[in-house]
């Protein structure tokens, strides 16, 4: 099984950097994505509680940046994520890093 991307979306600010970092490295057009943001909310779920969150979702264009990892570099999105909330590794290793709510694992 290929490596998995683990996102801690508690901290994803929706900054679009992962999308563009991937696009630029892989020569993708602005409407082609290796990873794409989705948005939850804004949804008022309590008197003072709002859900307004983002989750980046890898696409079939994502090759896990094999050409970078082979050289010991981090994938573009992992390195440049402004919130430091994306990791790449084996499914088992990534699953072990789910230590609180709001993680999502893409195998």
């Amino acid at each position: 099984m290929r490596d998995a991307l683990l996102i801690n979306y508690e901290y994803c600010t929706g900054c679009h950097t992962c999308e563009v970092a991937c696009q630029k490295y892989h020569d993708l057009e602005p409407d082609q994505f290796g990873i794409k943001l989705s948005q939850i909310g804004p949804d008022q779920i309590g008197q003072r509680r709002w859900q307004y969150e983002f989750v980046p979702i890898p696409t079939d264009r994502c090759d896990r940046c094999v050409s970078r990892t082979a050289k010991g570099k981090l994938p573009m999105c992992v390195q440049h994520c402004q919130a430091g909330c994306i990791q790449l590794g084996s499914v088992v290793e990534m699953a072990s890093k789910i230590v609180s709510d709001k993680y999502v694992l893409f195998s």
Binding site: C15, H16, T17, A21, L74, M76, Q79, H80, C81
Partner: peptide
């Protein structure tokens, strides 16, 4: 050809936003 963040730089610790990436 392209620009990447500098992982050793304490300021941004390897990260760059979409403006420098383009």
């Amino acid at each position: 050809d392209h620009v990447e963040g500098d992982p050793e730089d304490p300021y941004n610790q390897g990260r760059l936003c979409l403006r420098c990436l383009t």
